[in-house]
Simulated scan of single mutants.
Amino acid sequence: MGAPVIESLRKHTKAYLDCHLMVTNPLDYVEPFGKAGASGFTFHIETSKDNWKELIENIKSHGMRPGVAIKPGTSVEEVYPLVEAETPVEMVLVMTVEPGFGGQKFMPETMDKVRILRKKYPKLFS
């Protein structure tokens, strides 16, 4: 699904529409999703290590709430700078399966990351 689907949905709902994108260059998608009416834009830290500050600013400038996702094998510490930044992400999505295909089994060990984030950043979850 892409920005055209968000645009179609937005005409019929005021619901929060979070768009979680696992793409190589998320900056290319910020403007189209913002114009389409997305509420939130969640990108993967793994594809944005070099430009996350610019990406967060761009997401906010297009009226969306920035979020970051991490894959099961990515260290939770990698998102700390994004949560603690002057312009921070507003949500952290901990993936409990590898992105890319359905039917996978839940990886319970990923819940440790959730516990760590909840303890370190309680306001992130309020």
Score class of each variant (00 low, 15 high):
Gln104Lys: 07
Gly40Pro: 03
Ala3Val: 00
Phe43Val: 02
Glu57Lys: 15
Asn51Cys: 08
Val76His: 01
Glu86Cys: 01
Lys11Phe: 03
Lys105Glu: 13
Leu124Gly: 05
Pro72Gln: 10
Val92Cys: 04
Pro99Asp: 08
Met1Trp: 10
Thr110Gly: 03
Thr74Phe: 05
Ser61Arg: 15
Val68Lys: 00
Met64Ser: 03
Leu55Ser: 03
Phe41Cys: 04
Ile45Asp: 08
Pro72Phe: 10
Met91Pro: 00
Lys49Val: 12
Gly34Ile: 04
Pro26Met: 00
Tyr121Asp: 01
Val23Tyr: 06
Pro88Leu: 09
Lys49Ala: 11
His44Ser: 05
Ala15Ser: 15
Thr87Ile: 15
Met22Asp: 11
Ser126Met: 14
Trp52His: 00
His12Val: 12
Val23Arg: 06
Lys35Met: 11
Val83Arg: 06
Phe41Gly: 00
Gly102Arg: 12
Thr96Gln: 12
Ser126Val: 13
Asn25Cys: 05
Cys19Lys: 01
Leu27Thr: 02
Ala36Leu: 02
Val5Ala: 13
Pro66Arg: 03
Leu9Glu: 06
Gly103Ala: 09
Val5Asp: 14
Thr24Gly: 05
Ile6Val: 15
Val89Ala: 00
Gly102Gln: 11
Met107Gly: 07
Lys119Ala: 13
Ala3Pro: 01
Glu54Asp: 14
Leu93Arg: 08
Met22Trp: 08
Ala69Ser: 15
Pro66His: 06
Ile70Gly: 01
Met95Arg: 07
Ile6Lys: 00
Val83Glu: 02
Trp52Gln: 00
Gly2Val: 01
Gly67Ala: 09
Val79Pro: 00
Lys120Glu: 10
Ile45Glu: 09
Phe106Asp: 09
Ser48Ile: 00
Leu9Ala: 14
Lys71Ile: 13
Gly34Gln: 04
Glu78Ser: 13
Ala85Cys: 02
Lys105Tyr: 08
His20Asn: 09
Lys60Ser: 09
Thr47Gln: 08
Gly67Leu: 08
Val68Gly: 06
Lys35Ile: 10
Gly2Ser: 11
Lys120Ile: 03
Thr74Ala: 12
Lys120Asp: 07
Lys49Ser: 09
Ile70Tyr: 05
Glu98Met: 14
Lys14Trp: 13
Asp112Met: 09
Met111Cys: 10
Ile59Asp: 03
Gln104Leu: 05
Ala85Ile: 02
Val76Ala: 12
Glu46Ala: 05
Ile56Phe: 00
Glu46Asn: 05
Val92Asp: 04
Glu7Tyr: 10
Leu17Arg: 07
Glu109Gln: 14
Gly100Trp: 07
Ile56Leu: 01
Gly103Ile: 11
Lys35Asn: 12
Tyr80Trp: 13
Tyr29Ser: 13
Asn58Tyr: 12
Arg10Thr: 09
Ser39His: 11
